[in-house]
Structures are given as structure tokens and as C-alpha cells.
Amino acid sequence: MTYQNILSELQGQTLKVTINREQKLNALNKATLAELAEVIAFAAERDEVKAVLLTGAGEKAFVAGADISEFSDFNGVQGEELAANGQNTVFNAIENCPKPVVAAINGFALGGGLELAMACHIRIASANARLGLPEVTLGLIPGYGGTQRLAGLVGKGIALEMIMTADMISAERALAIGLVNHVVEPQELIPKSLEMLEKIKQRAPLALAAAIKAVNASGTGKSGFETEIREFGNCFNTSDFKEGVSAFLEKRKPVFGGK
């Protein structure tokens, strides 16, 4: 696949996706969002892709935000369409991707950039990362799922503090509040992310997809538990379940086929 704004490379069944607008601090414009939508759809559908690593080019920024110039003259209807399209095709698509998606956060993750990282299943941050949602300084609020995902990750109180103050926080603070899973030195960011994905890829692919679906349903009350029960039951119908049990009883490592 050839893109203008992102780089996409398959490395040992991990699709490494790099937002490649370093001179613009990897800001999300319409073209970049369209390419992200395409590459995430590709990853979700293709058997050769077992996991996705998402990062930004260079050390200054994961994604420093959205390209404000593209929507500076929008009205309310256009604003709603912008948010709905982005959420449906990119942010929700990442969150609901059946393949595990890890965000490797290098440098600034602000506004839409932090929303992009939060849509991923796991976040690993460089020690020099700075994270925040500054939209209220523009007279806006986060529109790509940020209000919902941030509150789910760190709780309502801290989410409202971050959104209403518009302050950036350090990687260590992000780790302390549960916004990121790990903090590593800059040179360790990609190796650590790939190491985690290598471990995850050894697990049963259909069970991973089921776990993603069930966890995403959390916080929805009874339907979340119903989703877990249904996905748990579905796992019993897979060849991977038979292989996992056989390997456990035979004291060997399982070899999962994703069926």
C-alpha cells in the first residue's frame, strides 16, 4: 500500500503504521484521516496482519492535534459531520479493530492526537511525551471520542480537569492516572511496543478479538456482561480453544490458527 501521509509496513505480521507529517508535527488533516481509515480497515480484514503498531514520525510528536485550518470556518452542522465521520471511520474503527492496536506515543499527543492514542487498545509512552486535550482554548471540546474515552480511562473528575484546564501532562503523570500503560526511554519506545505485540500475538487470535469486544462493552451495564457471556460461549466453538486445551494438558506451547 502506498500513501501520501502515512507509512505502512508489515513486520512479522505486525502492521507498523507511522503518521508521516513530521514537519507539521503529524497533525491530522482530512487526507491523513482518510488514509488511516483505509489502513485500519485493511488491518482488520487481512489474515496476514495479527497486530497493529501506531506511531508518529520523528521524536517531537505522536500527533500534535488536528489541522485547524481545515475547519476554521465550519458551522454547527459541518462540525457534527466532521466529528461523526472521524469517529466512525477512524477512532471507533481502531477501538473496535479485532486485531490488537498499540499506540507508541513519542512527543506531543494533543487534541485529536491524544484521542487517537486513546482509541488504541494499549498505550506506551516515551518519557518525553506530553499529553493533553486543549480544545477549550479554541472554543471547542474534544470531538473524536475524547470526552468519553478519557473519562473511561482516568475517571470523570480527572477527565474534566484535563479538558477544562487544557493543561498538558507528563508521561509519568499519564502513567499514574492510568492514561498510558508504560513509560520508557525514547530509544526503547518502538522495541518495547513490538515486544508487547510479539507476546500478544502468541495468544489465540479469536480470543483476542472476543476480549476486545467484551472490554469495549464495559460500562454499558447489563449489555456488557451479556457481551462477555456471548463471546465466552463463542470461544468454545473455535479450533483455537481445542488447541489451547490440548496444549495445556500435553504441557506444550499452543499453536493457534485463528479458527
Rank of each mutant, 00 (worst) to 15 (best):
T2R: 14
Q4A: 15
Q4G: 10
N5I: 02
E9L: 00
T18P: 00
Q23F: 05
Q23E: 03
Q23S: 04
K24W: 06
L33S: 03
A41R: 11
A43Q: 02
E48W: 05
G56I: 13
G58R: 10
A61D: 00
F62S: 00
G65F: 07
A66I: 15
A66P: 07
S69P: 04
F71W: 15
F74D: 11
F74R: 06
Q78C: 01
E80T: 13
A83E: 07
A83R: 04
G86L: 06
N92C: 02
N96L: 14
P100I: 08
G107M: 03
A109N: 09
E115V: 11
E135A: 05
L138P: 00
L138D: 01
I141Q: 11
I141V: 08
Y144S: 09
K156S: 04
I158C: 05
I163A: 03
I177Q: 06
I177T: 02
V183Q: 06
P186S: 07
S193Y: 15
L194H: 09
L197D: 06
L197F: 06
K199P: 01
K199H: 12
R203T: 15
R203D: 04
L206G: 06
A211D: 10
A214R: 05
V215L: 11
A217H: 04
S223F: 08
T227D: 09
R230K: 15
N234Q: 15
N234L: 12
F236N: 03
F236E: 03
N237M: 07
E243D: 08
K251C: 10
P254G: 03
G257T: 08
